[in-house]
Computed example of a mutant assay.
Amino acid sequence: MANEVSIFIMDISNSSKENIGNELSEYLEQLKNYITEWTENTAVTKVSHRAGDELVVVSSGYASAYTLAFYLSRIWRFPDHKPYFGLSFGDIQEDISEINIETWIHPLMKQARNANNHLKKQTNRLLFHFELPPLSEGQSFTVFSQQFEALINTSLTLKQEQINEQTEIQSLVCSLYAILGQQNKVSEYLGRTTATISHHMKQGKTHLILNAFYNIVKVLDSLGVQDWQAQTDKLQENIRQNIRTHLNDYFPEERSLS
Results as ranks from 00 to 15, higher is better:
residue 205 K to I: 01
residue 156 L to N: 05
residue 17 K to L: 15
residue 258 S to G: 13
residue 127 L to V: 08
residue 223 L to F: 03
residue 208 L to Q: 10
residue 136 S to A: 14
residue 81 H to Q: 07
residue 32 K to Y: 08
residue 140 S to C: 08
residue 16 S to Y: 15
residue 49 H to F: 13
residue 94 E to A: 14
residue 60 S to N: 07
residue 136 S to T: 08
residue 224 G to A: 09
residue 112 A to I: 05
residue 84 Y to C: 02
residue 191 G to I: 02
residue 178 A to C: 06
residue 133 P to N: 03
residue 89 F to K: 07
residue 154 T to S: 13
residue 160 Q to D: 14
residue 182 Q to A: 15
residue 132 L to P: 11
residue 41 N to E: 10
residue 224 G to M: 02
residue 163 I to H: 07
residue 189 Y to W: 14
residue 186 V to M: 03
residue 83 P to W: 00
residue 56 V to I: 12
residue 183 Q to K: 13
residue 104 W to S: 00
residue 197 I to K: 01
residue 220 L to R: 01
residue 21 G to A: 14
residue 28 L to K: 01
residue 167 T to F: 04
residue 97 S to W: 06
residue 33 N to W: 09
residue 117 N to S: 04
residue 39 T to W: 11
residue 192 R to G: 00
residue 148 F to K: 02
residue 257 L to G: 03
residue 85 F to P: 00
residue 69 A to M: 03
residue 96 I to K: 03
residue 93 Q to F: 14
residue 197 I to D: 04
residue 249 D to A: 13
residue 176 L to P: 06
residue 116 N to K: 13
residue 45 T to K: 07
residue 68 L to K: 06
residue 233 D to I: 08
residue 251 F to Q: 07
residue 183 Q to L: 08
residue 125 R to A: 02
residue 141 F to V: 03
residue 182 Q to D: 13
residue 111 Q to R: 10
residue 63 A to F: 05
residue 252 P to L: 04
residue 13 S to M: 13
residue 11 D to Q: 09
residue 190 L to V: 04
residue 240 R to Y: 04
residue 94 E to H: 09
residue 35 I to S: 07
residue 140 S to F: 11
residue 108 L to K: 12
residue 7 I to H: 04
residue 246 H to S: 03
residue 142 T to L: 15
residue 252 P to Y: 11
residue 147 Q to L: 15
residue 113 R to I: 00
residue 197 I to E: 00
residue 210 L to W: 07
residue 211 N to I: 11
residue 182 Q to F: 12
residue 166 Q to D: 06
residue 119 L to M: 06
residue 16 S to G: 15
residue 182 Q to G: 04
residue 37 E to K: 15
residue 144 F to I: 08
residue 148 F to G: 03
residue 157 T to R: 14
residue 66 Y to D: 08
residue 3 N to D: 01
residue 198 S to H: 09
residue 190 L to T: 04
residue 164 N to Y: 12
residue 141 F to K: 02
residue 207 H to Q: 05
residue 70 F to M: 02
residue 161 E to P: 04
residue 121 K to S: 05
residue 186 V to Q: 05
residue 51 A to C: 11
residue 210 L to D: 06
residue 94 E to L: 02
residue 166 Q to I: 11
residue 81 H to W: 01
residue 18 E to L: 03
residue 71 Y to A: 10
residue 148 F to E: 01
residue 151 L to W: 01
residue 2 A to Y: 11
